[in-house]
Amino acid sequence: MALPRALRFAILALAVALALAGFVGSVDIAPDRVVRTALSGIGLASAEGVPQNEQVILLYIRFPRVVLLALVGGALAISGASLQAMFQNPMADPGVLGVTGGGAFGAVLAIYLGLPEAVPLSLPIFAFAGALSAAFLVYSLAHLGGRPSSTALLLTGVAIGSLAAAGMSWLLIGTQDYRVKQVIFWLVGGAEGRTWSDVGLAMPFIVAGGLVLLVAHRSIDVLALGDDHAWSVGVSVGRVRLLLLCACALAAGAAVSVCGSISFVGLIVPHALRYLVGSSTRVLLPCCFLGGGAFLVACDAGTRLLSRSQEIHLGILTAFLGVPFLLVLLVRSQRTAV
């Protein structure tokens, strides 16, 4: 079966972003050496002739960072698109599940306790646990008064997100000065220093969550029309929404656990792609996964280029791009509401 044109374009965009990001870094490496090293990494060519130090930079610093960001961008975008549809709210993103705030809180707690110095993996594990716990808390609290409306779930997510932010501020005050920079990394997000072990840690959860969302695309489509419409055509709204929330929490939680709370990817990418490919999730969700990856990989390449003159974190760049986009979205939704 032929792939839809939008999907082919998204694959091409990700391939271009990955290729460009492979070429960009603080050390200039000739493009042919980058390509040869990449092909050698998957056993398709020999890296003979590429200096050892360049191979190390590419295989152990640049490539894992790029692959990880492709996964993380995809996870955040596909979760954002699914959450917006299932809550019938174009402003929803993984933050509304409490995933972003919870994940960052978990990471900051681990830093506060000084765990990463003894067990480096404790940081992503704490972040992942924080993300999933926050999502579970949001879901449980929203159900205290019976079956919640979409708005009740969203507001509970905002409340838990605020609570996590307050908790982080509290911990930050008590954190030793030399650890503050590490905390800031988790608050703004980024992929500096990420390795293949981070890829291995996040990938199974991102792939599992993403696959559930892709398979359940028809249910997500129907939920976008409203809960009563979904009930009417045979969707068990409560159960299906719980399953989809778990999938989003897994994918986005895994993303936050390795790259911190990178904001706005879950908003920018789905809305830009809706404009291009429409709202049918059959095409939108795979495009979001690929496009989200391409967007974050390209943004990271942008930060590396910009950082040659002034250091800038990935999460700061996505926020600089995301805030104007969000304002345009708000103005547009107000106009259509009149």
Partner: peptide, 9 residues
Amino acid sequence: TEFDITVQD
């Protein structure tokens, strides 16, 4: 609905 779902879909 807020979303640009086509009539056919």
